[in-house]
Design a protein around this nucleic acid. Sequence first.
DNA 1: GTCTATAAAGAGATAGAC
DNA 2: GTCTATCTCTTTATAGAC
Lengths: 212, 212
Amino acid sequence: MARPQGRSSTGAPDLADACSALPEGLLENAARMFKARGFASTTTRQLGAMAGINSGTLYYHIRNKEQLLFLVCLTSMSRISEAVHAAVAEVVDPLERLEVAVRAHTRSALQDADMHATMLVEMRSLSPESRARVRALRQEHETLITGLIEDAQRAAAIRTDIPLKILVLALLDLINWAIFWFSPDGEFDIDELAHDLLEIYRSGVLCRPGDA
Amino acid sequence: MARPQGRSSTGAPDLADACSALPEGLLENAARMFKARGFASTTTRQLGAMAGINSGTLYYHIRNKEQLLFLVCLTSMSRISEAVHAAVAEVVDPLERLEVAVRAHTRSALQDADMHATMLVEMRSLSPESRARVRALRQEHETLITGLIEDAQRAAAIRTDIPLKILVLALLDLINWAIFWFSPDGEFDIDELAHDLLEIYRSGVLCRPGDA
DNA sequence: GTCTATAAAGAGATAGAC
DNA sequence: GTCTATCTCTTTATAGAC
């Protein structure tokens, strides 16, 4: 009856520990089902079946269904943040920092497409406390991106005639929602897509005078 | 016991009729709740309460909960298609046709933000038959946009070094998902946002040599 | 056209054996 | 760590009165 995960409902004191204690692949499978059917329509019986266990057994590993969603959201955001931080760490040129950040974010979001999609649309299904925690992570990341764009503006690399907030959110729209139509089995691969989306964001779709 | 709406489950023989038979504002309120809590988590009791009626009474007007979602999706897509068709009708220049289409789509999506957001994320909650019908409308619209971009490419107005499919989907990402962060009470208005998003899609965010 | 009452099914979560 | 069994609650949808 002792529960290994323990701790308070809002806390992910150590995300890696909390997740590694789970049955192998539970989180990824849960994310896939949450994306396909929605959180509310995914039953604990289905979640258990995917992990090869009974619905009752699930409650040895998690406190409740919502905690699974919470872990999916935390994992998704942590991975993206980590990827972007690592990418910009070695770069100094402001425009280049923005570019490597965009590529890193895009790759991470597409790699964890199910988790990231779930985070984007199912935050509403979290308890207010959990939602606030995930929202804080998203906010932190948005602030980072905003800072990168601002720096590039100061370096006269990014236009200033469009509100900063719109520059940021347009970028996130472009990246984040590609995961809903991207398929790893499709005609494009992740790097190609990351490149093309960045190129559209950088330069737009118009032909320039002098283009081939 | 006679149900006014009648007809087959897939059919929206006349969408306007089907919706005008509903209690005033039911569709809009349903869309708002579906967006806020998700379709599965919105109960018929809540839906009834918003319309000022009992949950049982709801079933005098609709066949089941899913039909309400179906009508929301149909309405949302119909309005966007109509707006875009009307916008391009009077314009001949290929690039200009694309531009007025984008502005019309953006305005329509933002005006019916709750319905359109619901359509985008809750299509998965429809029955296979209803989902196929909505998907067909979306596909039709995507085909229209694809054609506009292709025409502009043939007129040497749009670049051809990025796959057509990515040009289309990037555009739709940019427009469609803005409705999740746009607020009519916020700092931007619809026309401003429509203009800025189009401008980013057209020209990108980089400064050009010679910019102020 | 709306009500009350309720049938029927399914959900999340727990208990206790192994 | 997993199972079976089950409690309790909520849900959609229907029936029949008004």
